[in-house]
Amino acid sequence: MNTALVQAALPTARAIRWAPAVCLAGVLVAATVLARSAGRPADVVLAIAAAGLAATVVSGLHDPAAGLLSAVPVSLMQRRGLRLALLGLPVLAVWFLLDSLTTARLSGPGPLLAVMACGVAVAVWAPQRRAVVLGASTPVVLFALHQFLPGGTVSDVLGWWLTEPWWVLAAATLLCIAGRRR
């Protein structure tokens, strides 16, 4: 493993703002507990959780010191990967907690990973000035359009991250790899 990345892990973890993610996880756990007590399937709560947690991870790509770090011999994609790993692992733990609290049909980390990869792909390919905002907004837009558009081809395609998550994950990962030098 790249020694520079290992050394950068702790300062990067300190630079990440954890409070919004922790508050958001608290809200999602409370909602899931309410759904459990209501005794109804919580698919929509889990879908909101997947999109919200994915947007949180992608928003963690925002690095105020990006300009300063552009001179160091660690590529931008490696630094992105480090941030994604630091935020993604606790978010996955939260997801498994939420999943275990519900009896929803939507199960497993597939939707979360798929929509997260979509957000990262947009952040990689979007114009640099608004890359992270657009990337973080992608899971939100995908969820909202799938939720409110009437059933049809467009709605089905927008819902692939829920119905065919592993294919979406693969496609978005390929896009990220293709844009690794951006």
Partner: peptide, 12 residues
């Protein structure tokens, strides 16, 4: 502190 963190917070 960071505007981008508002997107997931407000959404959820």
């Amino acid at each position: 502190s960071r505007l981008v963190a508002l997107v997931p917070a407000l959404f959820v």
